[in-house]
Design a protein around this nucleic acid. Structure first.
Lengths: 235, 235
DNA sequence: CGCAACATTGAGGGCCCTCAAGAGGTGTGG
DNA sequence: CCACACCTCTTGAGGGCCCTCAATGTTGCG
């Protein structure tokens, strides 16, 4: 199914139908704070291929992606949406827009069936007024987001395609002892997030492969020389 | 003076020596909240050419740029620092790093004499625990930062040099009735922030000028056709 | 099997970077 | 006052990276 369905509002909403993974989103939380968020959150299911929101539309609710895969970017009618950011739950799908410009800055698409949790911003604000620890967790979450974006900005400004791919591979393997990745997205979406075309990504993969730094087989990438990758990444 | 001085700690520190422009940084504040921030802030003066911090170093304090011009980017020993971000006070010079990674992600340089205000993060945290409205202001400030970065990321990924310049010009004129800009930074620094070389910026300026969209005379740029610029910017 | 979507590979070209030279402006010292 | 150094910006020539377009191979599904 490659058809993109428009954003509609026929979703089944329930309160706390699923257990919310707040610690993964905000760090360690008191059970009190978690319960307060649970009370605020509205769970929502979205089928694959549905637009979640469009840029320019007002953003009233913070949205946590509980489970599933979603993409953010600019949709262009003929070609579809090329993702600038792909999210895998649990992660914040919409965090800053309702708090800052109160307007979505990009289009978002469900790349698979999604489980979401909406936090209306005004009630959340009221809640945070009484729960300073929770407010601090949101501050930290936003700060981490800024840090990630700074790194991406630097990469786009100063690194070539090969360095960006190497950097991405290093980041993907980071924290795992096993140096084998299974790509969770289409290669064209990975390319899009790295600011290059699928063709260029393919060529870069082959280049790294021919130099013996990685071994590519379909959607499985084995990292053979992490140090050399780190060097190419420019860090 | 084009020599870059290393970051040292010989600054003269005072408490609230200057009136702090908190509203410009955080939005409207109760006089109580402002006074609390004043009590926490340590004013600091830095001469031109001084490094403010270096990437990788621990970030313990949030830093407000009260007055002056500072640049953030990656310094490379032979060439100096090419700014990815140039700040004019009042603005947040360091906001996210101490709250997220607790580590500076870039180098920073005083491009003129600076007036800074340091907010140590631990005392600030303690303060925000008692001042939820203030905490909310920081949340909003961080969210706005995320929004700005998203726009820059999108520009670098999908716009060519001409569109990025047009977009920047539109953003600079935004909010002024007078369509005359005085460039506050060297053109090479503007180019650097836009992710292009000074040569390319010069050619793009000439191109826009020849097409009658702007009129350039040194550091003065008159915007003649804002609508066409907006069109080029891709919005 | 036939179709559709994706990935790969190749050819060609455009955007923009690099390198180099020249112009204009400013501060310093003779 | 002028020469000179030094900085920035500008302009031109050349080339490399990566995008675009097109064809082919691969995979999954009805």
């Amino acid at each position: 199914m490659n058809v993109i369905a428009p954003a509609t509002d026929d979703a089944l909403r329930t309160r706390a139908a699923v257990r919310m993974p707040w610690p993964a989103l905000l760090g360690p939380l008191s059970s009190d704070d978690a319960a307060a968020l649970d009370a605020l959150a509205v769970a929502r299911h979205v089928p694959e291929g549905r637009m979640l929101f469009e840029r320019g539309r007002p953003a009233h609710t913070i949205v946590a992606l509980i489970d599933g895969q979603a993409a953010c970017g600019w949709a262009q009618p003929p070609r579809g949406l090329s993702p600038e950011r792909v999210l895998h739950g649990p992660a914040w799908l919409v965090l800053a827009a309702p708090l800052g410009d109160r307007q979505h800055a990009c289009d978002a698409l469900a790349q698979g069936p999604l489980q979401l949790a909406d936090l209306p911003v005004e009630p959340l604000r009221a809640l945070l007024m009484n729960r300073p620890v929770l407010a601090w967790r949101f501050i930290e979450a936003l700060a981490r987001e800024v840090g990630r974006q700074e790194a991406r900005l630097h990469g786009l400004m100063h690194k070539d395609a090969g360095a960006r791919l190497a950097s991405w591979l290093v980041a993907q393997t980071d924290g795992r002892t096993q140096a084998v990745l299974r790509l969770a997205e289409r290669k064209r979406d990975i390319a899009s997030q790295l600011g290059m075309t699928p063709e260029t990504l393919s060529r870069m993969m082959r280049s790294l492969s021919e130099r013996g730094l990685i071994d590519v087989s379909g959607y499985t990438v084995r990292v053979l020389d992490p140090a050399a990758l780190q060097g190419l990444a420019g860090g």
